[in-house]
Design a binder for these strands. Structure first.
Length: 858
RNA sequence: GGAUGCUUAGCUCAGCUGGGAGAGCACAUCCCUUACAAGGAUGGGGUCACAGGUUCGAGCCCUGUAGCAUCCACCA
């Protein structure tokens, strides 16, 4: 016997461990079933999981649990990402609080600390996965730095190197001066910051003219090599070929003309700093200028800065501007809002800087991806579709990918330098380390994440899992990492396995706070999923979070909705409790016998089948909100409010096996349909049903069964429901107590045989007189019968009500007539629609004329 | 500068391939009826951002406008 109220803590207790211990999450136990596979987007081992993870993983879990019940051999591989830069930043921060820098510790000791950190957070993540109820296969858990992934990474690096797709080069890259590492373009977050635009006078050698050049970064002026103007710019034509004097250090700078310069921008004269700006770098290459670096790896000025040497970039900026002002070369300073790049992890202003790094040559890889997306049989299908364009557009314009990081936590680059000759050796196997030293750098964390779907299955070794489960079926992720992750998995997979990594990608939005803001630490508006679970239960959290928005759209976390979701689960709980009480101890389930059903039973079965059909369709299309809504409407309105009440009549009469079977069949179907969303309560309720299996995980999903469709019963019951509703409403609007007895006259017949009994009970009808004769008075009129409520009430109120109904019907009839007299509609509308409208019009006309008659007789 | 999404009830949001708009919360009235007061019954509340167009018919398709949001690019 179930408790009176749903208690989420009691329900969740012990279930997850039971599932894991019984091996229900392990893939490949029955290989006669078709395979279905997914990989978890590996969370960073940087901290606890947040609501975004909760949504993402719940969607995956819903899909997996649904597919298992649908007869698939499901494999869902879990794992974590070492998250190179993010984790290293966290570990360094922790050390800094103890007054230690990573350089104090040295590489090896630091890595020990990082592994300690990883172990701590991986175990937190494990317990959170458990709390969320994720049905992942722990026997296949992976980590991006484990041995297998390491081998895969080395293999990929060496192969790409040998193919000429990885190269070492000196280019302008994004430098994080706090973490002291290079970053890829997408790890730089641009924000519009207010800054200053400095206008300086440059004396022109051999003339008494001055040129005005504007810059936002005066501290880089020690690395200037030229001043550029546009060749068409009349203001400066006569100066081209002369030298301008750099006001920072007195060096002469040739004045050159190039069409790159925008005449309209600034003063139309631009300084060229090849080692600290990508565009200037390109110009310098074109004209053969030297590349002069003036900042070191912590963004302090180097020896070229003269007296400013050793200053931080901003200190230098301030001092230099002051000095230039003092010697009369400052023209003006303007406030200016411009886009400034910040490091995604440290937040530091990124310094574009010349540096020797490793790159992946993207063009051939991108082209292969783009080509593959044109093939409908092998392309990765995006849900919703539009997100494919995000990927395509980015891939079309992608720059070479800077993959080396000056970090310690990560996959060390398998490149070795001969100590004597400096000759480079790129190899999966470590050479004799007496003769070689390894490259100090590690790889971008996304380099290994990009291999996740196949490396977790054992690739590059040939394994059974890889053969059976790759490509994976679906990937679920947020739109914010299409560039970072999805794209890299796709092109790496195509290049190395020849296949797409997943057949479909389900893209979801972000979770925001109640005010629509991003959840962030700095705002302090983050919601911890574990707090929500504590308060409302994981089933409510899961159901809420996956059903309150449409695919691909952002969603707000609204606590009141979680609360009402928990109330809904309580509703299901109590419905089940009632069903079990009603069925009794010795009930033996069997499929409802169609011949013995009451119209009430037949109607609910019809609605159940329609619900199963629509829920299944939505589930298959990843329309989880729609599926849940269809189920919700059925559970609340059709089942609880209507059927559970009405079925009491048959049950109390005794001979009610068919009704009991209906109760059981519908209840079980509901439990199975809510199960993927809310597995804990579903398991609890399922296991309390008679003749249950060991776990709901071994069950099958409800199948749509056309045999139970019964339109006639549905219509008859609908009329009965309307009658009850009308009587209740009538009482409410006429100030009659809801349980006041009334006498009913019905003509010419009840909606179905025995309907009167229901009226007696649910509308408190005292006597019910069924007559063939036309009713006098003020009847309610239905399709097939009319009903009059005899009660000592205000005739005027009733008349008003009838008039209102008449108005409505006139409108309806007018609508139908207009439609049907429209030759366009009659000739072009589909036949079914035409028939439907014709029938509706006839019905409405009849209803209207009866109402008019009754009104006349008043 | 380019792209995408959003604009529907007081609030938060659904609304699949076009065929008289829905939910939750909130609100009003009544009810502690033996599954559920985390409940039940009944009800009020919407020119579906705006302007055109296509169509027999538009919340849904097309064009444009406005506001909000996000992404990409540029920024000497």
């Amino acid at each position: 016997m179930l408790e009176k109220n749903y208690d989420h803590k009691q329900v969740e207790e012990g279930k997850y461990d039971k599932w894991v211990d019984n091996g229900y999450f392990i893939g490949g136990k029955d290989k006669s079933k078709p395979p279905f596979s997914m990989v978890i987007p590996p969370p960073n081992v940087t901290g606890k999981l947040h609501l975004g993870h909760a949504m993402d993983t719940t969607l995956e879990d819903i899909i997996c649990r649904y597919k298992r019940l649908r007869g698939y051999d499901v494999l869902w591989i879990p794992g974590c990402d070492h998250a190179g830069i993010a984790t290293q930043a966290k570990v360094e921060e922790k050390l800094r609080k103890q007054g230690i820098s990573r350089y104090d510790l040295g590489r090896e000791k630091f890595l020990e600390k990082a592994w300690e950190w990883k172990n701590e957070y991986a175990s937190t993540i494990h317990s959170q996965w458990g709390a969320m109820g994720l049905s992942v296969d722990y026997t296949r858990e992976r980590f991006t730095l484990d041995e297998g992934l390491n081998n895969a990474v080395k293999h990929v690096f060496v192969t790409l190197y040998n193919e000429g797709l990885i190269y070492q080069g000196e280019k302008i890259i994004n430098w994080d001066p706090v973490l002291r590492t290079a970053l890829s373009n997408i790890e730089v977050i641009h924000s519009d910051d207010e800054g200053e635009f400095f206008y300086f006078y440059y004396d022109v050698e051999g003339t008494d003219e001055r040129l005005i050049v504007a810059t936002t970064r005066p501290e880089t002026m020690f690395g200037d090599t030229a001043v550029f103007v546009n060749p068409k710019d009349e203001r400066y034509k006569h100066l081209v070929g002369k030298n301008a004097i750099n006001p920072a250090n007195g060096d002469p700078l040739p004045i050159m003309a190039d069409s790159y310069v925008d005449i309209e921008f600034g003063t139309g004269a631009m300084k060229c700093t090849p080692a600290h700006d990508p565009n200037d770098f390109a110009l310098a290459k074109k004209y053969g200028f030297p590349l002069i670096k003036v900042l070191d790896e912590t963004a302090h000025v180097n020896h070229l800065g003269g007296k400013y040497e050793g200053m931080d970039r901003y200190e230098c900026r301030k001092a230099l501007v002051e000095d230039i002002k003092n010697n009369g070369h400052l023209c003006k300073i303007e406030k200016m809002v411009h886009s400034v790049g910040h490091s995604e992890r440290s937040g530091a202003v990124v310094e574009p800087m010349l540096s020797k790094q490793w790159f992946v040559k993207m063009k051939p890889l991108a082209e292969r991806l783009l080509e593959n997306q044109k093939n409908p049989d092998t392309k990765v299908e995006f849900v919703p579709k539009r997100f494919e364009n995000v990927l395509l557009r980015w891939m079309r314009e992608v720059d070479d990918w800077c993959i080396s990081r000056q970090l310690w936590w990560g996959h060390r680059i398998p490149a070795y330098y001969n100590i004597e000759t400096g000759e480079i050796l790129v190899s999966e196997k470590e050479p004799d380390m007496n003769l070689y030293r390894q490259d100090e750098d590690v790889l971008d964390t996304w380099f290994s994440s990009g291999l996740w779907p196949f490396a977790t299955m054992g690739w590059p070794e040939s394994t059974e899992d890889f053969d059976r489960y790759f490509p994976t079926s679906v990937l679920v992720t947020g739109y914010d990492i299409i560039f970072f992750w999805v794209s890299r998995m796709v092109f790496q997979s195509l290049h190395f396995t020849g296949k797409r990594p997943f057949n479909q990608v389900l893209i979801h939005g972000l979770i925001r706070d109640e005010l629509g803001r991003k959840m962030s630490k700095s705002l302090g508006n983050g919601v911890d999923p574990m707090d929500v679970i504590e308060k409302y239960g994981v089933d409510a959290l899961r159901l809420f979070i996956t059903t309150n928005s449409a695919p691909g759209l952002d969603e707000r976390y609204v606590e009141s909705k979680v609360q009402s979701t928990a109330a809904y689960l309580n509703k299901i709980w109590n419905a089940c409790r009632y069903v079990e009480m009603t069925l009794g101890e010795d009930y033996k389930p069997s499929k409802p016998n169609k011949k013995e059903l009451t119209p009430i039973d037949a109607a609910i079965l019809d609605k159940l089948e329609r619900t199963i059909k629509s829920v299944t369709k939505s589930m298959d299309a990843f329309q989880f909100g729609q599926a849940a809504t269809a189920l919700y409407d059925f559970v609340y309105d059709d089942f609880c409010s209507s059927y559970l009440e009405m079925s009491k009549i048959a049950l109390q009469k005794g001979e009610s096996k068919a009704t009991k079977d209906t109760l059981f069949y519908v209840m079980k179907s509901i439990i199975l349909m809510i199960y993927p969303y809310s597995p804990f309560i579903a398991e609890e309720l399922y296991c309390s049903l008679p003749e249950h299996l060991e776990s709901i995980m071994l069950e099958s999903y409800p199948e749509y069964d056309k045999a139970y469709l019964n339109a006639k019963a549905v219509k008859a019951v609908a009329i009965l429901e309307n009658m009850i509703k009308d009587i209740r409403n009538y009482k409410a609007t006429n100030g009659v107590a809801p349980n006041a007895k009334v006498n009913l006259n019905i003509s010419p017949k009840e909606p179905f045989k025995g309907a009167a009994e229901y009226l007696a009970r649910f509308a408190f009808a005292n006597s019910i007189n069924i007559t063939k004769e036309s009713l006098s008075g003020n009847p309610f009129i239905y399709d097939g019968c009319e009903m009059i409520v005899e009660e000592d009430i205000d005739k005027e109120a009733l008349k008003a009500k009838l008039l209102k109904e008449k108005e409505k019907l006139i409108g309806e009839v007018a609508r139908g007539e207009k439609m049907l007299s429209n030759p366009g509609f009659v000739s072009k509308a589909p036949k079914e629609k035409l028939a439907l409208e014709t029938e509706k019009l006839e019905k409405n006309r009849k209803l209207l004329s009866s109402i008019e008659e009754k009104l006349a007789s008043l």
